[in-house]
């Protein structure tokens, strides 16, 4: 590169000033840039001079905006990571895949059942899976994608939901699938069916909603709204704290405001 560059991270409030960090060459879409070795791929883009619009969201590994594929000159292996979570390595050839086309079914959760038939009707592709494991290898969240696809083909929605729970919907699985399935869309359908129909319903929540609708707490809360600050502070200080290790059967001494 030849030109003198700032040594610190460009990220205000996120980097550290001053300290010498060795530089490494990386290849952003084939073009070489020298960047400090401590940076994540995302910060390396910014260091190189990009203002990210695509490929940057939460910067914390959960939103799925910055799925990235890379490989090294001496390797046949395609590697994956989230740009915001992956530290640069010398000679990585990389590109972000911030978007990959994938069709999503339209459904009304109220009108479908939590079974294989629903999955197959909405996503007939599910049965095309050849269990090649490319999706699992492409997952930056280390999800066993192929295993949940196998579960989906069996109609085992519980397994699909559990295995896919950490999915950030970045779409890298779909980008690599040889039979062109959009696995992550199938996964969220399965999770929502599981959450709605298979997980047992919370009865205490329904009971509380009913009591609220009956107006049980209106006067109690309105009483507090009319209470002056000193009295409110007193009530606050005196409120009974549920012990951290209390079981579900714990009840407070004072039940008049329940």
């Amino acid at each position: 590169m030849g030109r003198k560059k700032r040594e610190d991270s460009p990220s205000k409030g996120e980097g550290k000033p001053g300290e010498e960090v060795p530089k490494v060459p990386i290849f952003i879409m084939g073009k070489m840039y020298e960047v400090p070795a401590s940076l994540t791929i995302q910060k390396a883009f910014e260091y190189a001079g990009y203002q990210l619009i695509r490929g940057c969201g939460c910067r914390g590994g959960i939103c799925g905006a910055c799925g990235t594929v890379y490989r090294f000159p001496d390797s046949q292996k395609i590697e994956v990571g989230l740009a915001c979570q992956t530290v640069v390595q010398p000679n990585m050839y990389l590109t972000m895949i911030p978007f990959f086309p994938a069709n999503r079914a339209i459904y009304d959760l109220e009108k479908i059942r939590p079974d294989l038939e629903s999955l197959m009707k909405l996503y007939p592709d599910v049965m095309r899976c050849v269990q090649c494991n490319t999706c699992t290898k492409a997952c930056p969240m280390d999800i066993e994608v192929m295993d949940y696809m196998a579960a989906a083909m069996r109609g085992d929605l519980v397994k699909v939901a559990e295995l896919s729970f950490d999915c950030v919907m970045c779409g890298l699985c779909a980008s690599r699938c040889p039979v062109e399935i959009a696995q992550y869309h199938i996964a969220i359908l399965a999770r929502r069916l599981y959450g709605k129909y298979i997980l047992p319903k919370s009865e205490h929540t329904d009971a509380m909603v009913k009591r609220i609708e009956e107006g049980t707490y209106e006067s109690k809360v309105e009483g507090l709204m009319k209470t002056d600050e000193d009295q409110l502070k007193k009530l606050y200080n005196e409120r009974e704290i549920e012990p951290e290790r209390a079981g579900e059967d714990w009840t407070p001494k004072d039940s008049q405001y329940l």
Binding site: T205, M208, R239, L258
Partner: peptide
Amino acid sequence: ATKGDKDSPYY
């Protein structure tokens, strides 16, 4: 506050 035996909107 969904657990009416120990909690309420008041708290």
